[in-house]
Amino acid sequence: MSLRATTSQTIGPYLRIGLEWMVIEDLAPQGVPGERVRIEGRIVDADGKPVNDAAVEIWQANSHGKYASAEDAQSNPLDSVFRGYGRSLTDDAGNFRFRTIKPGRVPGPEGSTQAPHVTVTIFMRGLLKQLQTRIYFADDPANAEDPVLALVPVERRPTLIAKKRADGALEWNVVLQGRNETVFFDF
């Protein structure tokens, strides 16, 4: 006899009360191996208005392509202080930010290998369930053979790729609806 999953409900406008205690914008303390990256972005709605009440959560492998999760049975090493989880709550301008390391490559379906990517889960007032998306890294040659990017229409792929800014940060914005709408996944 199988049960049915509980229904999702919106996070509502008062998410800070419950989620602010565990904001983690700096995922990789000193000593964690890997290429340091800053990921910054902004969430806007259908009218281009900033979304100031969103929770953005990221999940990623370490630089060896290993997830700090019991479900990852690979033998590559864990980094004891790197959990791979981040949470940022958008500010009045709709901005979120993370400092982390670029993840290594992880296995994909049917023997493939995925390009380095960060998994993104977004909650906000007006979303009855979370949005699921991904961040890939500009100029990574592995993007060309990534099995998930390959499922996305070519013209929409750029919405999943963080671009290097002059100040060195990687910029990745979220457009909820309309022109240049970010690709969201049915997960």
Binding site: A46, M124, Q177
Partner: peptide, 12 residues
């Protein structure tokens, strides 16, 4: 104003 309007991509 916040719901996606484009089809979702089915994620393995």
């Amino acid at each position: 104003k916040r719901a996606p309007s484009q089809p979702l991509v089915v994620l393995p």
